[in-house]
């Protein structure tokens, strides 16, 4: 067992973990972040994507012990219980989700992408959006609603910047 301190969605906690515990499991069971979903446990579906020190990371390919001192964000931090983050709202209006299981992973993968596009003040090409989500599998939507949601979220961001 190793003592580690993680800051998860703003709250820090020190805990003792077995080295082999996956970050995904520790976030789910020790921090109660059940929005972290495990879809394949071998790094091939993107469901478990979280932000580790600000960038997307597959929490099924990460051991919690590796993250001592790190800051982690999960989907719960994005727009709270009302899901009012611009990308979450866009997923809703563009029907970018159905069963919702892959959704937290898509949101955590794509939220930084949307921010980056807004910062660059440009609307990404269709292919660029699809490439940005190429590590995430959605079995329900056929991806189209998710592409539309990204476009919508970028539009909202660009409009806000222009205003």
């Amino acid at each position: 067992m190793i003592d580690i301190t993680l800051e998860v969605n703003g709250a820090s906690k020190t805990l003792s973990v077995e080295p082999r515990r996956l970050l995904a499991d520790v976030l789910r069971h020790e921090f109660g972040m059940s929005g972290v979903h495990i879809g394949c446990a071998h790094g091939a579906c993107g469901c478990c994507t979280v932000h580790l020190d600000g960038t997307p990371r597959l929490s099924c390919l990460t051991f919690a012990v590796q993250c001592d001192g790190a800051s982690i964000r999960t989907v719960e931090s994005l727009g709270g219980s009302e899901a009012d983050h611009v990308l979450q709202q866009a997923f809703k209006s563009e029907h970018g989700l159905q069963c919702g299981y892959c959704t937290p992973g898509f949101l955590m993968t794509l939220a930084p992408f949307v921010e980056e596009m807004v910062a660059q003040k440009r609307m990404p090409e269709e292919g660029e959006i699809r490439e940005a989500m190429s590590g995430n599998i959605c079995r329900c939507t056929g991806y189209q609603g998710i592409v539309a949601a990204v476009r919508k979220a970028v539009t909202v961001g660009l409009d806000a910047g222009a205003a």
């Binding site: 080295p19 082999r20 996956l22 446990a41 071998h42 790094g43 091939a44 597959l58 099924c60 390919l61 990460t62 051991f63 012990v65 590796q66």
Partner: peptide, 25 residues
């Protein structure tokens, strides 16, 4: 172990089972 993108899947399948991981990140 660096990024773990190849090693950890093998470990999760228990196809790789190192006794010690040395984190060089």
């Amino acid at each position: 172990i660096a990024g773990g993108q190849s090693l950890v899947p093998m470990m999760n399948f228990r196809l790789a089972r190192p006794g010690h991981l040395v984190d060089i990140n």
